[in-house]
Each structure stands twice: as C-alpha cells, then as structure tokens.
C-alpha cells in the first residue's frame, strides 16, 4: 500500500484520510464573528512546512497522544531537547520525545514499556506542533 495518495476532489471543509486535510474554516465575514478562531491557524504556525501523520500505537500515551490521533509536524524546524519529534528510521516514522543524556541525543517514548531508542541511522524530519482527535 502506498501512503500519501491525495484524493482528487477538492471539496472545502472535508477531511480526507490518506490525502490532504482541509484544516481550516472560512474567515469570519462580519464583525460579530470576530471573536472566533480559525482552527487551522491556531494549530499551525508555518503552514507551508506542515504535514500530517496518523498515530499508531500507544508509545506516546503519557503525552496524551493516542492511537488514531493525527499529528501535525513542521519540517525544517530546529528540534530542541524536550520537543516531541518525528524521526524517520529504517522501519518508518516514529514519534518520540527528543532527550539528551551525557551529551548524547536519544528518543524516549511517553510510555515506560517502550525502551529508549539510540538510532544509528535515520534523521529527525520535524517537530510536532499540534495533535488532534475526532470523536465522531
């Protein structure tokens, strides 16, 4: 199965799985609505560098990130120790805390049943900036 195929229809305000998510709402057209927020802009800082991934598994449950959640990560953002990052390892993407001990960087799950990762290969591709969940 190939990930990342986009649907061809471009209906506004529809969430498309395995495609592009329209993560925004129309702007308030008049003054009365001026106190609303735009969800997309609230969640996303740099929209031209932001991407979506779907979480699978419970490795980050201690951080409140559950299986099935969608995360938005920003490419090219300098990761800081303590950030939740997306790393691309040999077997795919992983979401973990970036930690540092004795000058050495490693990845830590937010779940004590997962071991720390000290990957020899791979790269940190971005920093998680938001996560969201739908109950419908």
């Amino acid at each position: 199965m190939v990930h990342g195929k986009a649907a061809s229809s471009r209906k506004p305000h529809t969430l498309r799985k395995l495609g592009h998510v329209q993560a925004g709402f129309a702007s308030p057209a008049d003054e009365e609505l001026a106190d609303t927020i735009t969800v997309g802009e609230y969640l996303i800082r740099n929209k031209n560098a932001s991407y979506l991934l779907e979480v699978e598994g419970d490795s980050m449950q201690g951080a409140g990130i559950l299986s099935g959640d969608l995360v938005i990560f920003e490419r090219g953002k300098e990761p800081k120790v303590g950030d939740i990052v997306i790393a691309l390892l040999e077997d795919g993407y992983t979401i973990k805390y970036l930690r540092k001990k004795q000058g050495k960087l490693y990845l830590e799950a937010a779940n004590p049943t997962y071991p720390n990762l000290y990957p020899k290969q791979g790269e940190i591709v971005g920093v998680v900036v938001a996560t969201f969940r739908s109950y419908t």
Binding site: H3, G4, A6, P12, H13, R16, K17, L18, G19, H20, V21, Q22, A23, G24, F25, A26, S27, T38, G40, E41, I44, K47, S50, Y51, L52, L53, E54, V55, E56, G57, S59, V71, I72, I86, G92, Y93, T94, I95
Partner: peptide
C-alpha cells in the same frame, strides 16, 4: 483560510 496538509502516512 483553508490549509492543505499533505498526509505522509503512519507514525509509531
């Protein structure tokens, strides 16, 4: 106001 985000798959 709509923002298109490419979906890159699953993350563990």
């Amino acid at each position: 106001k709509t923002i298109d985000l490419p979906f890159l798959g699953r993350v563990h």
